[in-house]
Design a protein around this nucleic acid. Structure first.
Lengths: 105, 105
DNA sequence: TATAATGTATCACAAAACGATATATCTAAA
DNA sequence: TTTAGATATATCGTTTTGTGATACATTATA
């Protein structure tokens, strides 16, 4: 699938989590919790994607003072990209729900 | 990313379109239109994924009477899978929107 | 002081998506 | 009436993305 906005699904999940400062491990847990275990992103995906998001300047290193935890957060640019992406995702959901609802009648 | 529901993003888009009977080419156009060109699924992805969805019995061949067009539609099983998937996607959107909104304040 | 949980990181492989291309049919108009 | 563009399905080979396995260091707890 090609999205002019460029966000893959995993990227979108991670960026959704990074509307607040969080660290990799925390994001993994957050996603698992909020989806009740339906979606999991393992460490390999997590840190690979964080690297990509940093390169794109959609997130930045928010705090590294902790010896273990590196917290990240969305940049302004990243916020815009995420907002655009969500618009598209909502359209898709609307398409599905309209079809599913009409079917019940 | 691992989803117990198994739906990739492209699968979800195509299944969303197949809440009504449609054929491959039509789905491609529909997705492009509903996302105003932000998302495009080309023929390679389209027919590869249709094959997979048939194999999973999430869609079925609805009508092949037309010499050119093969129309497909969601099976009951497919409908359930899509519904579950949408629930998860909504949670993700909520997570993002909550974070983005709080930030504006 | 072990051992479980927390936390980051990478490598090698598998899965998914896609560009390019092929082929056929239908439609409109030159 | 033929030809060019739009419609429609299909696959091959490659690229991109995601992940299982693994490693390793730190912190908490039992």
């Amino acid at each position: 699938m090609k999205e002019t906005g460029q966000l893959t699904e995993s990227m979108a999940y991670i960026m959704a989590a990074l509307t607040k400062p969080r660290h990799g491990y925390g994001i993994m847990n957050l996603i698992e919790e909020t989806t009740k275990g339906a979606v999991t992103i393992g460490p390999a995906s997590m840190y690979t994607i964080i690297k990509k998001l940093l390169k794109q300047e959609w997130i930045y290193l928010y705090d590294k003072s902790d010896s273990r935890r590196k917290t990240y957060m969305l940049t302004k640019k990243g916020k815009k990209v995420l907002e655009e992406d969500i618009k598209i995702r909502k359209q898709m959901i609307e398409l599905a729900e309209t079809g599913l609802k009409e079917d019940e009648e």
